[in-house]
């Protein structure tokens, strides 16, 4: 735009300047299209190509280097995946169950914590704020050890509940970060209004606050879901092999180099995530179909 202006000022006749300006705009538009095209291609390369390779591998028996295409196809991956020995249904159900449980627990705690941090003054508030991001700073492998010792004593080790609790600890900082922003943006305006119009704290929460925070709640929940769903080390340590999730079952195939089966699991992993996210999206559409505005004066 600036260049166009420059030319318009330089040229003697305003009309000529105008034409030059138009041409420049056209050029800009063309370069915009080129840039966005470039990023689209990079995006496709980064996302779709690995995806394509996973899909291909799950049906491939051998794909030796330096061949560009698989040499032999087989259904071994799928057969193995659905063989009763693997117990795919149970593992999948357990994975989704743990992830949903973690999402629920984490989001509820995060919503309350975010509210406390945003609107209440209490002794040690800054320490609490710092503590809420602490799991960000400590590598999960390090604090997993500590948790394991604690959970063994508490009888939570090797249980689904223990795994859910451990996952909740890792995912809480993310959920609190998201809910913190949303809570501050929502403010106390509508809550105050509901209270003075006769709504008890519980009904205010139900009829006003939850609908207002719903988009944030669902973002936090899906974030936590995906964190929990892809946990490997923590699940292994706390679950002690007794609690099987997709990630823990898939991992040995990856390390042992059985790419066919690992890829088949990868596909299930991907599909399960997609289905759950689709459900989240549906939920959001269903319950927040009316425009929710945080910022309107």
């Amino acid at each position: 735009m600036n260049e166009g202006k420059q030319i318009a000022e330089d040229s003697n006749s305003p009309q000529r300047g105008h034409a030059a300006h138009k041409q420049l705009l056209k050029k800009h538009r063309r370069s915009h299209a080129w840039v966005s095209g470039f990023f689209l291609i990079v995006h496709l390369l980064c996302i779709l190509m690995p995806l394509g390779i996973i899909v291909t591998w799950s049906f491939t028996a051998s794909w030796p280097w330096p061949e560009l295409l698989p040499q032999e196809f087989s259904s071994r991956g799928l057969v193995e995946l659905f063989s009763p020995r693997q117990g795919l249904g149970l593992v999948l159900g357990q994975s989704v169950g743990i992830a949903l449980g973690t999402a629920l627990l984490s989001t509820v705690i995060a919503t309350c914590a975010a509210r406390a941090l945003a609107f209440h003054d209490f002794f040690g508030k800054e320490l609490f704020r710092f503590a809420s991001v602490l799991p960000f700073l400590i590598p999960s492998t390090v604090f997993a050890m500590g948790i394991q010792v604690l959970f063994i004593r508490a009888g939570l080790a090797n249980t689904v509940l223990g795994v859910i609790l451990a996952h909740t600890i890792v995912s809480l900082p993310y959920a609190i970060a998201i809910m913190g922003e949303v809570t501050i943006a929502a403010g106390m305006r509508l809550e105050q209004q509901a209270r003075v119009l006769g709504a008890s704290p519980l009904r205010t929460c139900l009829h006003v606050q939850v609908p207002q925070l719903l988009p944030g709640i669902l973002s936090a929940a899906s974030m936590v879901y995906i964190i929990s769903f892809s946990q490997y080390f923590l699940t292994l340590l706390i679950g002690g092999g007794a609690v099987k999730t997709l990630a823990t079952v898939m991992f040995p195939f990856l390390t042992s180099g059985d790419r066919t089966i690992a890829s088949a699991y990868g596909l299930v992993f991907l599909l399960a995530t997609l289905v759950v996210f689709f459900l989240f999206e549906l939920l959001l559409k269903r319950f927040a179909n009316r425009e929710v505005s945080y910022f309107e004066g």
């Binding site: 006003v208 609908p211 004066g297």
Partner: peptide
């Protein structure tokens, strides 16, 4: 008495209508 037990009507400067309800649901809220 908590705010919701005082039986008052309050109009704020910034209206504060509930965006998740339509007009008559807003009016019927109290």
């Amino acid at each position: 008495l908590a705010p919701h037990r005082r039986n008052i009507g309050f109009v704020f400067q910034d209206t504060r209508l509930f965006p998740n309800m339509n007009v008559e649901e807003n009016v019927a809220f109290p």
